[in-house]
Design a protein around this nucleic acid. Structure first.
Lengths: 167, 167
DNA sequence: TATTGTTATACTCTATAACTATA
DNA sequence: TATAGTTATAGAGTATAACAATA
């Protein structure tokens, strides 16, 4: 539940939240993510999937046909990892593997009706948790937070370059 | 390098950033954290430590004497994990273990001069990376982001309760 | 010869259980 | 009997290497 990452410490319910860490962005990001992550996992449990499975269902719903390797590329996970993910979703009847007729090396992975239903309901559940998580900073704060994070992610790399900030 | 977490997918440098994920707070938090985390790890490499080690040094510097178990409690990590962390720091000469005279079951862990020097310089390096990471949203945006995240973390739990937001 | 899916294997990180010494 | 530190072990998660089928 609680962990310590390569970029800093991560706390759960701490007796005494170490003040120096509370002003560190790495700590704040990691801990916020962990909290939200745990809440989402809990909300998705009834569907028998976790955030990873939901992300796979989401990607599969956006394009058709999509092979395992293509899906892996979209989510930037290893193809061996995708095998296990698809295995899990197939076990639950959310997707089916079908040999591609055009290239028999490929598996076309398609959502079942059950999978589509799960996707929609699980997405709602996830969005609900997200809204509750963001509630303390209000709608305006939430919009702001999302936009700021998008800017940070779409900006150039942090690494590389010298010591001084380049304005 | 790239991973997929229990609360969602995590991307590195993706060919096509899946739009649906870019509006998900879980994805944004995780990915922002990963980026910053990688940059910090790179900046700390010359010191022979990572973010975890730095956090331990930081905690050890705030209170004296502090036992391994107390340090573990401050950072909310397992005591067995703390053994390995202290081992690493001791190997590099940043800390020393000393048997407590008051309770001979306890190890008092204290910073060496070298450890204190490392702490200060590594903290500077970390802060520098953090500033560069936040640069795209400006000083105002950075302050806002930090405050928003602090509010989210100091608010009550996300989990528990029913389906509807409690305003 | 390269690519897709698969399996087996290894590696990292962390927690659990058991052991020792102290209390 | 409980606590602090340690060690050994196991579990989750991921990546790497090798293999079969196909191109």
């Amino acid at each position: 539940m609680l962990t310590i990452s390569s970029s800093g410490i991560v706390l759960g319910m701490l007796e005494s939240p170490p003040e120096p860490l509370l002003s560190r962005v790495g700590y704040l990001l990691k801990h916020a993510q962990l909290r939200l992550s745990a809440a989402i996992a809990e909300a998705l449990a009834p569907f028998g999937i976790d955030g990873r499975g939901l992300a796979v269902l989401l990607v599969l719903s956006t394009e058709y046909p999509m092979s395992q390797l293509e899906a892996a590329g979209r989510l930037n996970v290893d193809r061996t990892t995708m095998v296990a993910l698809i295995d899990g979703l197939e076990d639950k009847g959310y997707v089916v593997r079908r040999r591609s007729t055009e290239d028999r090396r490929k598996n076309v992975v398609e959502l079942t009706d059950s999978g589509r239903d799960c996707l929609h309901r699980a997405e709602e559940a996830r969005a609900r948790v997200e809204r509750r998580f963001l509630a303390p900073i209000g709608q305006e704060g939430a919009d702001r937070l999302i936009r700021d994070l998008q800017v940070l992610l779409t900006s150039g790399d942090v690494e590389g370059g010298g010591d001084r900030e380049e304005a």
